[in-house]
Design a protein around this nucleic acid. Structure first.
Lengths: 214, 214, 214, 214
DNA sequence: TATGAATGAGTTTTCATTCAT
DNA sequence: CATGAATGAAAACTCATTCAT
């Protein structure tokens, strides 16, 4: 029984490692082509496993998109506690910290993130996936909303509609990766300064008015 | 000879009308599914023509994307003279006018615009298309840039890098259609007020400092 | 009535001229590509008529092959009386004359002839066409066979099996156009001397034995 | 390692066997219809594999023609060493041996050979295929040319132009399969006696003149 | 008679998914 | 667990033929 548990454990570890391989391979492939131009075989080979072996870890090609979502959101969510810890209990710092982390993760996977952001439209129409997507993204969304709410309660942040601001702030980050032929991308740091200034100027209550200081 | 010209003229009109039919059909279909899920046959039938007849007006499925670009950008470009005329020679009004028109067009085709914005990444890798895309979009981009430059010259608008601001402003408009599962879309007018305020607050020189008034 | 007849006559002449145009156009097109690579539209335009107009003179694409057969065989058949007249009643001269004319016609249409010779395999499986093909070719075949028979009767030509010799002699001529990648074609005159010598040496009874002289 | 080699070996064997299946299936189908009338699916099913499986062993439909060329030429080339061995060092025997083998292979695939001989015209316009075709045919062509050259050196065979004779001799063999409606095919042996006599009488130096005897 | 836009059947090719080994 | 050969459904595209003008 102990052996069985250990095996189970090893299997889980193996599966996790394989899924990570597949995730990274998919990111590399999607940096070159669209989701539909990329074949399952190509992603499998890029991951160093045989074409058919993808299906030992994934149910379908579409599930690669779910894997991408879970992996990227996961990296973000893992970073949240430390961001919170370093925010000195100032929701403004926490908000900017989350946005910075978001931009960092997006920057890490750029193209794949843009692809994912497009394909997710169609994925979430499938009720089977919608729940899983929500589960993966919610901790991040909650952290963002939580910081905003606490900021409002403390009189440090102002906004009208929580939901729409939450999404707008995320859009400011993701816009960085989404620009197609219309957008001449600047480097990440330049972009970061731009949106940070935007957020501070528009949403943060001026120091003279607010009680604390950033 | 007159007859020949008339025929030629009629043919042009026919082709133009058919291409418009196809454009509108593609928009309707792309509101339901992705470009790769949509079949040429489906779009043709939606346009009220036979499956094969698409190829009388288009060289390939990809050219549908070019048609979308030309049609949407075309609607925008057609509106430019009047926007200019009504701007009272104030580049700030012209800038906001262009952005409002952009948002209006994007709103009209929403889903199809989002699809186009994604697919255009892959389309523009084909040098044959890149030139055509540029040709379609440039008048719009120039108008935006022109208003910004004139505004700067007159001391009414401030910015650092023309190119990056031009693109950022466009992104503010297109972001409206691009949000996937992350973005809970608010209605267009609410969004418009949001970004208009953003532009006015950040880029426009305060009335106290600037010479004219908006 | 006279007018009607005249019109009919004119119509016939017109149709004949159009069919000639189409024949020549088809030859030009088939010099560049195979029968299946060539489109009806392409041949029509090459003939200087509109795509759909082919069907005023032909029932189907396959009938182009019939037209080719009739036209090429026709040119040959038209030459037969004069060949006969110049043969001085010597079947050997007539035979060589026919073969020379055959080679001339084949040379004139080379590629199209080769294409026709291939496609005719499939055309003649259609009983509707078989009769028409036979009707077009028979005068030529008869002339060839006739010369051989008369030659044999006069003791000037020797052979075993009439049918097989007739065909072999034709093959000698058509081989000139049929060589694909295997055959490095020599010029027509060189080839003609080669096969003429072959015929004289192999089939003709030596002068010492035969009564007359060539 | 041994296992890997064995697997590799087995895979090669499998691919070879499948390609052979496809070759034979193509021959059977092409005995019934032209290359363009034959569909890839039909050939695949005739080969006992699924429609799409053809593409595991072939890049395109056209490559079937290359496969035909390689297979037929291959059968010929495999026979060459033994022909050489049995020729008793007499180039005349070797030459006739090669021609007889050629006729045998052509007889085996008759219709498919005729189709191939036609389609190869268009295939060899593609430079990618030209090289492969040449590679497949060259050993055969060299053997033919080699026998002719050695024969000439020994004073046993006479000819003017090596290249053109080589091709003419091949044409004598292939003509057997090429005759369309014009040629009433005789049986192979009759035809063989015919062309063998032709070669002996025309190209071989008479015994009185030559040193050796056949 | 002449046109050429429209049709839709038919073909090649791709690829997600399965399964015997 | 892992493999990769096999499958077959699906889709873009072509083109002979028709027919309203």
């Amino acid at each position: 029984m102990a052996a069985a548990i250990k095996l189970q454990h090893q299997d889980d570890l193996l599966a996790k490692a394989r899924r990570r391989q597949i995730f990274l391979a998919a990111c590399r492939v999607l940096a070159r082509k669209s989701f539909h131009q990329a074949t399952v075989k190509e992603i499998a080979l890029e991951a160093g496993i045989a074409a058919g072996s993808i299906y030992l870890y994934l149910q379908s090609k579409d599930e690669i998109l779910l894997l991408l979502t879970e992996s990227m959101a996961g990296e973000l969510v893992e970073a949240l506690p430390e961001i919170r810890a370093h925010s000195n209990n100032d929701p403004r710092r926490e908000l900017l910290g989350i946005m910075r982390a978001t931009l960092t993760v997006i920057d890490r996977y750029q193209e794949a993130f843009a692809v994912l952001n497009h394909e997710i439209r169609y994925l979430e129409r499938n009720s089977q996936y919608r729940a899983a997507l929500k589960r993966a993204i919610d901790p991040y969304r909650s952290a963002l909303a939580g910081a905003l709410e606490r900021g409002k309660d403390l009189g440090l942040i102002r906004y009208e509609n929580l939901r729409s601001v939450t999404e707008a702030l995320h859009m400011l980050c993701s816009g960085w990766a989404m620009g197609g032929s219309f957008l001449a991308k600047t480097d990440r740091e330049t972009y970061w300064r731009e949106i940070a200034a935007l957020v501070e100027g528009r949403f943060f209550v001026p120091a003279a008015t607010a009680g604390g200081k950033l």
